[in-house]
Amino acid sequence: MVRKTSGKIVIVGSPNVGKSLLFNRLTGSYVTVSNYPGTTVEVSRGVTKIGDTEFEVIDTPGMYSLLPITEEERVARNILLKERPDVIIHIIDAKNLERMLPLTLQLIEAGLPIILVLNIIDEAEKIGMKIDLHDLERALKIPAVATVSTTGRGIDILKGRIEEYVRAKG
């Protein structure tokens, strides 16, 4: 069996959804922050090991849509276009699922390898939202994981999903 020993994970999502916290949960302390070439936009890169595979993890600036308006969004899209990631984690605020799903749809449309992360799921539950992950996965045809990045809930499941996903792709 040939094992892949390195891969690339890109985290995307709009601002204020816990993107950087998830990035920190995955990578720990081995992080480099640098300006994206030719811009003033900062991009963080770190490393994580999931199963036997080592991944480079890239935290992108906040984006709302694949059609960019700001420089941050332009940088985020360029990373998606040029970095050829093995997995893209689209992290959203679960209670704002309806408003954030359009970007998920765009990423799927673009043929990118997406895992949807419904973050801050505890707040969604608190306001009485019950999200059926299986229904969501069936409708979108991508994996969906519920997490709380402040407490670490769901992070292990997410890692498992990343592992499965990469293995399924070969």
């Binding site: 309806e98 408003r99 799903l101 359009p102 306001i127 009485g128 939202m129 019950k130 999200i131």
Partner: peptide, 19 residues
């Protein structure tokens, strides 16, 4: 399309306490 999917996959429980 997003709204359609949400309608399928999300249920709103009425008596939850709001923050």
């Amino acid at each position: 399309e997003a709204s359609r999917i949400v309608k399928e996959a999300v249920e709103h429980l009425p008596h939850a306490k709001l923050s």
